[in-house]
Design a protein around this nucleic acid. Structure first.
Lengths: 225, 225
DNA sequence: GCGGGGTTGGCAGCTTGTTGCCGTTCCCGG
DNA sequence: CCGGGAACGGCAACAAGCTGCCAACCCCGC
């Protein structure tokens, strides 16, 4: 069943594509023609997040034609100034509306409200992508995206909000990832313990984490540590 | 100063090489000719860990010639059965002596006790590798490696030790990375709280982590979550 | 100078996490 | 059956983490 060509056909309206090159081959024309694109990305560098920005430079140039591009990213990305700048660049050069959320994101692309690409588990081998055109599924995913979009925060707004914590984030995250206890870390940074813990709580909020283990996973995932 | 060819010459005996392809190009002959190889790897998939296993298949075939290959890996890798099997394969097919340690590892390769390759920070752009022949530095790094090697545990021994925790590790790690509290997690796994916490403590020991944040970072780093 | 707003840091109460202790249970070997 | 060893799970003591409270301080505008 197509085991050799990186493609698995599951049903008439759900297709599993293995690997990003194959996905690109099959979907490039859809992106080029799309007038409405919605993406939820787990990070800065994934295919979902970045997929061939050149096409979107083209799309941006055609923005007068009514193309709409929306991208949803993890809020934690803005703890890193390089990533923050890159997101702003994507917004400005590509004309994408960008919002961020501390909630965990399932990597998703929705094209013209009628085709959905879901990224599979990243852990095992070449990544699988589900390409779905079944209307009920598309509507369901779109509904979830809209909900997430509505509760997300505009890039510029959130960026301003975390500008200050971003200054201290690397130091705090570094100490946390070394297993340093709060009292020691606070002393090293010349902060009171209460203030250090405030900083940690702010970082955890941005990472959308409810435990320190989860925060560690998230921080590593986003390349912050 | 070679900015265009992926190579930066720092001094007569310390060379910075940018990117793994370039590093391979410059060192392949050294690996082929090496009779003593010592590697400390941060994970399963990094260049340091895996660098062209074909060459070592050759090396294994030539084992009668007196080649010695030692590899040091993070103990946490053995929490994953796929990784555990892969390490055993590398030991058996390549004839490498493999030990594991819970301590944090700096990615290092030592060739014939006279050349050292240190992997640089993985966070920014193409990875830099320092190729060092300066004897004092080589001896220093070698000394550190020997110390780590001595305190490390043989693969088979550690593997047997964690075989049982490995069964439950995925479930525990999954719950931890979702931010689930201990009491809830224990109930979900049908364990008493004290036993769940024993499991968590064992996982943290294998990960060499002293805080849950650090454990989360390590677990993610090793691809366990 | 005064008032308002925001931040800091110590304190305290509470929750969560860490680990020793010990009785209970199970398994295995003699 | 008995004894020994290991694991489980409840309990408790303690440490670490979370967060509200509030006084003190700083900055800014009027």
């Amino acid at each position: 069943m197509g085991a050799g060509d990186g493609l698995t056909q599951v049903s008439g309206s759900i297709t599993i594509v293995r690997g990003e090159e194959e996905l690109y081959r099959r979907t490039a024309h859809l992106f080029a023609a799309a007038t409405d694109l919605a993406c939820a990305a787990a990070g800065l560098a994934s295919w979902v997040a970045d997929h061939r920005s050149e096409e979107f430079a083209d799309a941006a140039a055609a923005r007068r034609g009514g193309k709409r591009i929306r991208k949803l990213y993890p809020a934690g990305l803005l703890l890193d100034s390089v990533a923050a700048r890159e997101l702003a660049r994507r917004r400005d050069e590509i004309g994408a509306e960008i919002r961020v959320t501390p909630d965990e994101i399932n990597e998703t692309i929705i094209i013209d409200r009628r085709l959905v690409i879901l990224a599979g588990d990243r852990r095992s081998g070449p990544r699988g992508y589900s390409v779905i055109t079944r209307p009920e599924v598309v509507q369901g995913v779109l509904s979830l995206f809209e909900t997430a979009w509505r509760s997300a925060t505009d890039l510029a707004v959130y960026n301003a909000r975390v500008a200050e914590i971003r200054q201290i984030a690397p130091a705090v995250l570094d100490l946390l990832s070394q297993g340093v206890k709060d009292e020691t870390a606070a002393r090293r940074l010349g902060l009171g313990l209460r203030t250090y813990r405030r900083r940690v709580a702010e970082l955890m909020a941005a990472l959308g984490a409810e435990s320190r283990f989860q925060a560690g996973v998230r921080a590593r995932e986003l390349g912050l540590v």
